[in-house]
């Protein structure tokens, strides 16, 4: 059984994307003392209709990557193409019509909704901003339809966020993201704040909507089992770099980067019999500060296969012959 790749062309392309945040010291005379290289030169493509999963630990730059694609954080370097337009060099005014084509679902269903707006106004706000509706009646119809699409009752349009549960709030967030009829949505940890029994409801909703509206997702999460479930392809990030990209099948069956292997191994499988037989790779140490990352391969201080050369040579993301699989580990590439 071959994993189908929904190849309908490239929707989003990222070339050598860099997002650096300056750090200042001093109270009165602020002096720039360096940069946090949140995203440090990443390349990837997202194909129309697919879900690209982006995994990594906190501070690895996965959220910043998503925001930089949407131009919510403007890139320090590199290019972002949406369809065939290079959006990273556009002015804010030129971007606005394109913003209708892409939107974002946020992690925190409690913090991302304005508590003083009704659910209907939250969902309808993008319609107003983009002048999508010509009349009040049309606006109301649209909001009602959006509520129905995400599985909420249209009566709820007049309620305020605090009257909803976490799962329902996330549905409001999804409805708002859908309101402008985008073709591309960045889902930033959309389920990690939800209760276990509710997570599946939102995952299924996102899957159904993708099919219905032919959506393309960038799905950002730290939990590989969720990402594997929803994604067609998966990219693994570590300290601002992508260290491996592959189809979900290859990434799970044949993980090549030592970090990917450790991440997979760190996720417990809910089955004590399977767990008892599994090999547990426990990597030592913590994620270093992105302000002062290690030299060479940024993962080398925690890597169980590290060689002396790993602290000097910076590995590049390279394609495995004959596969849709990229990895940046000199050790593997030399041996393989």
């Amino acid at each position: 059984m071959s994993e189908e790749i929904k190849n309908n062309g490239v929707l989003v392309e990222v070339k050598d994307l860099k997002v650096h945040f300056p750090i200042f010291r001093g109270l009165i005379r602020k002096k720039k003392v360096g940069d946090v290289k949140a995203v440090d030169g990443v390349d990837f493509q997202i194909l129309t209709g697919e879900t690209l999963g982006l995994v990594g630990e906190s501070g690895c730059g996965k959220t910043t990557t998503g925001r930089a694609i949407l131009q919510l954080d403007r890139p320090t370097g590199g290019q972002v193409f949406f369809e065939d337009t290079e959006i990273s060099s556009l002015e804010e005014g030129e971007l606005r019509p394109l913003r209708r084509r892409m939107s974002m679902i946020f992690q925190d269903p409690f913090g991302s909704l304005d508590p003083r707006m009704t659910a209907g106004d939250i969902i309808g706000e993008p319609l107003v901003i983009h002048n999508i509706c010509s009349s009040k009646a049309e606006y109301r119809d649209q909001v009602e339809e959006l509520l129905l699409i995400v599985g909420l009752d249209p009566i709820m349009a007049d309620r305020y966020p605090h009257e909803f549960s976490g799962g329902q709030r996330q549905r409001i967030g999804v409805a708002r993201a859908l309101s402008v009829r985008p073709s591309f949505i960045v889902c930033d940890e959309p389920i990690s704040a939800l209760d276990v029994s509710i997570q599946a409801q939102i995952i299924n909703l996102l899957e159904d909507l993708q099919e219905e509206f032919n959506l393309t997702y960038l799905f950002i999460a730290h939990d590989l089992s969720v990402v594997r479930h929803i994604s067609d392809r998966i990219a693994v990030m570590y300290l601002g770099d992508i260290v491996e990209i592959a189809t979900r099948r290859d990434l799970y069956r044949n993980p090549l980067h030592p970090y990917t292997r450790a991440l997979l191994s760190a996720i417990p499988i809910p089955d004590p019999v399977v767990e008892a037989e599994r090999e547990h790779i426990i990597i030592q140490g913590e994620v270093p500060s992105p302000f002062n990352p290690p030299s060479g391969c940024k993962f080398h201080p925690r890597c169980i296969n590290a060689r002396p050369s790993c602290s000097q040579e910076i590995p590049r993301l390279q394609k495995i012959e004959g596969q849709e699989h990229w990895v940046s580990c000199e050790d593997y590439l030399r041996a393989g």
């Binding site: 549960s165 509710i198 599946a200 409801q201 995952i203 594997r228 479930h229 099948r249 997979l264 089955d271």
Partner: peptide, 21 residues
């Protein structure tokens, strides 16, 4: 049935528990 597992067949849909806690 509602949590995705690393060793699960990915084509299988998750079965959520309906309703709220």
């Amino acid at each position: 049935a509602s949590v995705p597992r690393l060793d699960m067949d990915v084509k299988k849909k998750l079965i959520p528990i309906e309703g709220q806690p």
